[in-house]
């Protein structure tokens, strides 16, 4: 599973906000240029970004191995024809390019997750969304990160206990109900306790804002994001029919 790996690569030094923006801009450019030339250029850029983030492509590949068959399904089905010659390779080109684009986007996700500690992601959310919604979103995202391992452990225990007691032979619906109910009951009492604890510690709408850092690496990342967006707009703008 992808997790944060401490380090001091360029990728680690760029703030979470800049990295999120860069990813969005990259996605925009990739959607605007889903053609062999565009994706080749973006592949080069993605490889460079992975290198800067101390994320070997090998690690990315290992992470998404399970996804590859799903990605391959679309072009395979699309090229299938009911009748001779049964397969039409030309029809697979578009979907294959689209599938490859998804893979590029996922590669950047891997780099982001490996270089960004949770608290920075949380702070980025709180900063990107202003006011009370931003406070709730930042707090909520932090709590999701906090609750995940707890719930995973609960669920693993339940499934184990079920297997021991031959729960495997119960009907599927019943098994799902057991797994979900066990997780839910325990978790609901947990969160009620958590909510009381939050209030006891003066949960407020206007806490000290998270520390903001904006270094040279951030400036470069933003510059790159702007360049990508401009490149995306270059092609999309006329397509929108502006000026005919």
């Amino acid at each position: 599973m992808l997790t944060y790996e401490p380090g001091d690569s360029v990728g680690h030094r760029v703030g979470a906000r800049s990295k999120l923006l860069l990813q969005a801009a990259f996605a925009g450019a990739a959607f605007a240029h889903t053609d062999p030339v565009g994706l080749a250029a973006l592949t080069g850029l993605a490889l460079a970004l992975l290198a800067l983030a101390a994320t070997p492509p090998r690690a990315v590949f290992a992470e998404y191995r399970g996804v590859l068959p799903f990605l391959a399904a679309a072009p395979a089905i699309e090229s299938f024809r009911l009748g001779a010659p049964w397969v039409d390779p030309a029809a697979a080109v578009g979907p294959a390019l689209a599938a490859y684009r998804t893979l590029l986007l996922l590669a950047l996700v891997a780099a982001y997750v490996r270089t960004t500690p949770v608290r920075e992601s949380e702070a980025a959310v709180a900063r990107l969304v202003p006011g009370k919604p931003g406070r709730l979103l930042g707090l909520g995202v932090g709590l999701v990160f906090r609750l995940l391992p707890v719930l995973q452990a609960d669920l693993a225990r339940t499934r184990e206990a079920m297997a021991v007691r031959l729960g495997d032979r119960r009907p599927l619906r019943e098994r799902i109900r057991l797994v979900a109910t066990a997780g839910l009951t325990r978790a609901l009492s947990r969160t009620d306790r958590l909510a009381v604890a939050l209030r006891a510690r003066c949960l407020s709408w206007n806490p000290t804002p998270p520390e903001a850092t904006f270094g040279r690496a951030d400036a470069l990342a933003l510059l790159l994001a702007v360049a990508l967006l401009a490149w995306a707009a270059w092609d999309v703008w006329p397509a929108l029919g502006v000026g005919g």
């Binding site: 608290r119 932090g142 709590l143 906090r146 306790r193 958590l194 604890a197 939050l198 006891a200 510690r201």
Partner: peptide, 16 residues
């Protein structure tokens, strides 16, 4: 009045 609750592990807000 500071308060510490039973089952502290349910009451943490952050991971570290």
């Amino acid at each position: 009045v500071g308060m510490v609750f039973q089952e502290p592990r349910d009451c943490f807000v952050a991971a570290t």
